[in-house]
């Protein structure tokens, strides 16, 4: 019971800190009034949502604290792949040629946050949208499919993202 309470307090503190940091960046002022209002708001929101923000079973700090440098690299790769896939989508639009398929595969990522980020990144990659995410099983609609083999499809769709994400979280 003690550890559960301590973990809850810690989650509350982390949520509060994140919210307050965003507040300070947004207001960009250090008045007493602004700081006070932000603290009250952050406290209220953290009290309401710390259970959703960081789930109770995510009991490892590596599960939600990223390695910053690797995260920046990952974001740069994400932006690059976003532009690449938009250009591919543009070409597919002009030529009117597509090969849509639904593929299934599994991911090796362990934490919820990493899986969520992987699902979101897959929505960015060349013409893929994540349809469903059950534990570690992903259902993906692939617009420019090149294969029907499910493991090969998994390697093509998620391969690069998964390798990078395993270094960011976990």
């Amino acid at each position: 019971m003690r550890t559960v309470n301590a973990w809850r307090l810690m989650r509350f503190g982390i949520s509060f800190g994140a919210l307050y940091a965003v507040w300070i960046v947004f207001t960009a002022s250090v008045d007493a009034f602004s700081l006070f209002t932000g603290a009250i708001g952050s406290l209220a929101i953290a009290a309401l949502t710390h259970d959703i923000f960081i789930a109770q079973h995510e009991a490892s700090l590596r599960a939600f604290v990223p390695r910053p440098l690797v995260l920046v690299g990952f974001l740069a790769f994400l932006v690059y792949s976003m532009y690449l896939s938009s250009v591919q989508m543009l070409v597919a639009l002009i030529r009117g040629r597509a090969n849509p398929r639904v593929v299934h595969f599994r991911t090796r990522l362990k934490t919820d946050l990493a899986r969520m980020v992987l699902a979101n990144s897959i929505t960015f990659t060349p013409g893929t949208i994540t349809l469903d995410l059950n534990d570690d099983h992903l259902t993906v609609h692939w617009f420019l499919a090149t294969t029907r083999h499910s493991r090969a499809a998994g390697d093509i769709v998620k391969g690069k993202f998964e390798d990078r994400l395993r270094r960011v979280w976990s």
Binding site: S85, S86, M89, L93, A98, I129, F143
Partner: peptide
């Protein structure tokens, strides 16, 4: 254009959400 060109929800979503995000 993709939103109006493709016939089913998935393909429309592909075009509109991806290109819109970009």
């Amino acid at each position: 254009v993709g939103l109006y060109r493709f016939p089913d929800p998935y393909a429309r979503l592909q075009a509109s959400s991806l290109c819109g995000t970009t």
